[in-house]
Design a protein around this nucleic acid. Structure first.
Lengths: 244, 244
DNA sequence: CGATACTTTGAGCGCCGTCAACATCGGTGG
DNA sequence: CCACCGATGTTGACGGCGCTCAAAGTATCG
């Protein structure tokens, strides 16, 4: 079983007007003229390679970023230097809002594979949002959505078992991959088992063992990073209720 | 040991111009004329009694709320009906941002004691923020700060022991109580042990046992809900490093 | 093709959840 | 004012989930 990578090639000169992800991204609901204005403030960067940093802890906050293709992980630190992956970001999602508060980023954002990014200068975005109510609403909605994602993760971490966490994680990824144009059943994990274990608050051995159990029970087919969800309904119920 | 309640009386006709919390709240950095405009869109409500709901799951989102005095807990649900307390809100803090995304609230907000609230209609706030850059920045900053708080909690839940979680929780409350004008060392917990255990992802018996251990080790003096932090530095190190 | 990172699998044990009993607090009504 | 009662908090015994340590197997890349 081999599944196409989640990272198709993407030209770094592309524009919002022709971007297949614009229905997920900030330009949603913008009229043609407005879209041109929005497109004009965006800087396209050369693609990030695996392991490259989009921003580092302590960097001055000046942009938010939209992902065109590829994937990122956002890593925060506590005072003792322990890492915590708070988010994985997929195409069509926005990165960097946590830097607004006091003007610098509190953690790293690493590319987990070759990743194309749109850089959106926040001051320009604010100015433009002043004039375009649709854009403003979408900006607030994006931030609010990230909060809801955080609350989902908090609930997951605070009272769910390893099985429930991993079921929820696989389902959540499936939903988000589908939203950006992939199959809802098959995808390729961009992150390592170590990343998953860190994000879900588990030991990496536990992640490995639970995935094996899911495979043995024919809930999913997993080989390396290729995932195929065989029984979405059962997996969903496991994630929510804890009952198989 | 008895410590004054965190809920002094607060007139519900008060205005931002005279509010002691305005330096924490949205009006921060507004000029006098702007402050008048801001004050004009706010509705003061009669105080909430213990257990009253500010909003319920599924309610249409139309306001954010600033706390003048008292405290709230925000409770979210998963599909199986399990509750998860994602936030405790103290005076000077803003509640309700998670409703922006799809226009309704995803959980309850309960008053944990008698609580005075400023209701801020979000549509008016957006309009006003269009004209007043300071207000706009502060709005973004408030949302961004809530995200950072979420990330802190995620880190806490994902890899910390019961001792570390509770140490972190006590320190965090101390900081926030100090910010709104209390002592940094002594405060009264507005929430039950059950609420704490839910929020931190622990059994309530564990909360009780860890607090006893902290008391035995003279890190804190706790009697019922009255907390006095005796060794802030040690408690902080315990929360961050796990080392006593 | 060798080196390095990543993943799987096993054995043992400790933290913390569950169950249970009891103590304490706060409020209500006789 | 006191007796009562439900809600809240404390303490103990015990077992299981998931972590740690260890080692072998596998993908990936220069």
């Amino acid at each position: 079983m081999t599944i196409a990578s989640a990272t198709p090639y993407c030209s770094h000169g592309a524009h919002c007007q022709t971007c297949s992800l614009s229905s997920l991204c900030l330009p949603v609901a913008l009229k043609t003229g407005e879209l041109d204005h929005f497109d004009a403030i965006i800087k396209r960067r050369p693609p990030l390679a695996t392991g490259d940093c989009l921003f580092r802890q302590g960097d001055h906050f000046s942009n938010v970023y939209a992902i065109r293709s590829g994937s990122l992980k956002q890593v925060n630190f506590d005072h003792a230097g322990n890492e915590q992956i708070t988010h994985f970001f997929l195409p069509g999602e926005l990165v960097g809002f946590d830097g607004i508060d006091d003007g610098y980023h509190t953690g790293y954002a690493h590319a987990m594979e070759k990743t194309c990014i749109c850089e959106i200068p926040f001051s320009h975005l604010e100015t433009l949002a002043e004039r375009i109510p649709q854009l403003r609403s979408q900006l607030f909605r994006s931030m609010s959505r990230e909060m809801k994602e955080d609350h989902r993760l908090i609930r997951l971490l605070s009272c769910k078992t390893a099985d429930e966490r991993i079921a929820g994680f696989l389902i959540n990824l499936a939903v988000r991959f589908q939203r950006c144009g992939h199959s809802s059943k098959t995808y390729r994990l961009p992150m390592t088992r170590t990343d998953i274990s860190n994000h879900l608050g588990l030991a990496l051995e536990t992640v490995s063992r639970v995935l094996k159990r899911f495979r043995d029970n024919h809930l999913v087919a997993i080989r390396g990073r290729d995932v195929q969800i065989l029984q979405p309904q059962l997996l969903y119920e496991l994630a929510e209720n804890g009952s198989p």
